[in-house]
Design a protein around this nucleic acid. Structure first.
Lengths: 201, 201
DNA sequence: AAATACCCTTAATATATCTTAAGGGTTCAG
DNA sequence: CTGAACCCTTAAGATATATTAAGGGTATTT
């Protein structure tokens, strides 16, 4: 039964990865072989500040936050990752040096992970995976660039409205404290923003 | 002579592209064939809002800014690109839909460009280019992520100090108005930040 | 089921940043 | 070479956002 579940999870990964460039049987076999399933409890960490990020992680279910902690001890959310999304500290993963971020489960989660050597093996032996992961990163890059534009040009209220519009599923399952940390404002101020928005309607 | 110059420029591109994955002769030949040189005057545009971004651009010399204009008519700098850097509206380039940004030369520039069909041809026929461009995007992604972290966690002063530390060459050749737009503050406030910093020393 | 930790809100006060206006310096285009 | 456009700075007043403190609600853990 556990094995059956795991097979279903890998089908999800496969569907996600074949969307842009369909995979051949041999590629699928390797994919299933090299990705390892792991369950993570709520508040469980898959990466600590100072660790070298050794895995590229696909989220099957549940939700993670990736964040940094500043000198004052405050958390700043860089990214959320829920079902069908990837999460990893790319900077540490590619440099193989200790990173500066945490990746923590906000909800109980199931993930599929591949190690750096195995990913490099895939890149080297099945060129298609280069394209596949290039596109994954490109999409994440475009998302990040939109976020930077918001950060430098929009008010907190605009950013909040944009967030709940762009990620309604996330917005409804995350506590506002976490959203505030992602938007770069305090949760008290987000409270005020929400009140003002409610009065506008 | 113009041809000799152009050959030198393509050598620069080659050096840049072979750094991570050295290229074979055939790959180099294709590279030189598919990249086209272009000169751009100061204030010349290589992309307008509403255009479909048809090229991936490598900057040989000079400097560009990529920016969006908001409803109030204000420019917001998403990115600078000087020698040895890439610039393109990835979102429009990959979706083949009209984009929302401008790319404009801040200084007279020389660039090398490849079109989307030619890049796809390279990807398909020389798998190594997938890796090369994957790494280019990964680096840009990591840079952007650091910028997002700054935006959501640091004061304007901290962001400014970080900018001139991280990009000293850019900082010294850009007007402060452009830097302010990149940092997401007004140029008047940047002026105050600089005065405060000067007094601290 | 109690205890604890977390979450959301409100409000008063403080700080960061913007807006507007103005003047002088520099660079650029005609 | 000269006017126009751009750039930098200053400062006063306005607005956006942070901080602190407090109370009540909800979920998690024991």
């Amino acid at each position: 039964m556990a094995l059956h579940e795991e097979a279903k999870h890998k089908e999800l990964l496969l569907a996600h990865m074949s969307a842009a460039f369909p995979l051949q049987e041999k590629e699928i076999k390797e994919l299933f072989l090299l990705f390892t399933e792991r369950k993570v409890k709520r508040r469980g960490f898959i990466l600590h500040q100072g660790d070298i990020c050794k895995h590229f992680t696909f989220v099957v279910s549940g939700c993670f936050k990736m964040y940094a902690i500043d000198q004052a001890g405050k958390e700043h959310n860089l990214e959320f990752a829920a079902e069908n999304e990837w999460v990893s500290d790319l900077s540490s993963f590619y440099s193989e040096k200790p990173g500066s971020v945490y990746i923590e489960a906000i909800e109980p989660a199931v993930i599929l992970q591949i190690t750096r050597p195995d990913l490099i093996y895939l890149y080297a032996n099945y060129p298609k995976f280069n394209s596949t992961f290039r596109i994954i990163i490109e999409r994440k890059y475009i998302e990040l660039q939109n976020r930077v534009l918001q950060n430098i040009s929009a008010t907190a209220e605009e950013r909040y409205v944009n967030f709940i519009t762009q990620y309604p599923a996330l917005a409804s399952r995350l506590p506002n404290t976490q959203i505030a940390s992602y938007l770069g404002i305090t949760s008290e101020f987000l409270s005020k923003v929400r009140k003002d928005l409610a009065h506008k309607r």
